[in-house]
Amino acid sequence: MRRPDVMVIAEEDMDTEGSIDPRALVAAIEIVSRSNPDNDWVGKIRDYPLMGIPVYAIFDPRTGTGAVLSDIHPTPNGPRYRYSFAVHRGSPRW
């Protein structure tokens, strides 16, 4: 089970009791943990497409970089994000 730092969910999907189905997420946003950066950069990039989360945004305050990943597609190793773009602190997208 994964718990993003920020979950983007359609308002109508928030009217359910209990846990939120990960397939209801529009996006997951993570701020990289200083103590375990591989969890966000490796594990969650692998797991979020498996969970059907269509957009994953990750920001790393240690390096001033980040990425936005989207467009899940099948691979021999399971679903993966096809598209990503890098962001850097100070750039218009950051």
Results as ranks from 00 to 15, higher is better:
residue 6 V to D: 00
residue 63 T to H: 08
residue 58 I to M: 04
residue 18 G to N: 10
residue 78 G to S: 12
residue 74 P to N: 11
residue 30 E to D: 13
residue 53 I to M: 04
residue 70 S to W: 12
residue 30 E to C: 04
residue 81 Y to C: 04
residue 50 L to V: 14
residue 1 M to G: 13
residue 88 H to E: 15
residue 33 S to C: 09
residue 78 G to E: 12
residue 88 H to N: 12
residue 19 S to W: 01
residue 63 T to V: 10
residue 5 D to L: 02
residue 45 I to E: 07
residue 27 A to R: 04
residue 38 D to H: 04
residue 21 D to M: 06
residue 36 N to I: 03
residue 78 G to T: 14
residue 21 D to A: 12
residue 41 W to V: 02
residue 72 I to K: 01
residue 28 A to N: 07
residue 89 R to I: 11
residue 47 D to Y: 03
residue 91 S to K: 03
residue 25 L to C: 09
residue 3 R to A: 13
residue 67 A to K: 13
residue 11 E to M: 09
residue 16 T to W: 00
residue 74 P to E: 14
residue 22 P to L: 08
residue 88 H to C: 07
residue 10 A to S: 14
residue 27 A to D: 05
residue 48 Y to A: 04
residue 71 D to Q: 14
residue 79 P to E: 06
residue 69 L to E: 07
residue 85 F to I: 14
residue 90 G to E: 12
residue 59 F to Y: 13
residue 36 N to C: 02
residue 42 V to H: 05
residue 28 A to Q: 07
residue 42 V to P: 02
residue 86 A to T: 14
residue 40 D to Q: 06
residue 41 W to E: 01
residue 68 V to R: 06
residue 11 E to R: 15
residue 62 R to I: 08
residue 94 W to I: 12
residue 8 V to C: 08
residue 89 R to T: 11
residue 49 P to V: 03
residue 15 D to R: 15
residue 24 A to F: 02
residue 46 R to Y: 05
residue 44 K to L: 02
residue 16 T to V: 15
residue 80 R to C: 04
residue 5 D to N: 08
residue 92 P to K: 08
residue 73 H to M: 12
residue 74 P to I: 10
residue 43 G to I: 02
residue 51 M to D: 13
residue 76 P to A: 13
residue 67 A to V: 15
residue 32 V to Q: 01
residue 65 T to P: 00
residue 26 V to I: 14
residue 33 S to N: 05
residue 1 M to Q: 10
residue 84 S to E: 06
residue 47 D to T: 07
residue 76 P to Q: 10
residue 58 I to H: 02
residue 94 W to H: 11
residue 8 V to T: 08
residue 75 T to A: 09
residue 10 A to V: 03
residue 80 R to E: 15
residue 48 Y to F: 14
residue 94 W to C: 09
residue 46 R to H: 08
residue 2 R to A: 10
residue 31 I to Q: 01
residue 25 L to Q: 05
residue 53 I to E: 01
residue 26 V to A: 09
residue 88 H to M: 11
residue 85 F to Y: 15
residue 7 M to F: 00
residue 74 P to Y: 06
residue 35 S to L: 10
residue 5 D to V: 03
residue 8 V to I: 15
residue 64 G to V: 13
residue 82 R to S: 12
residue 19 S to Y: 05
residue 56 Y to H: 12
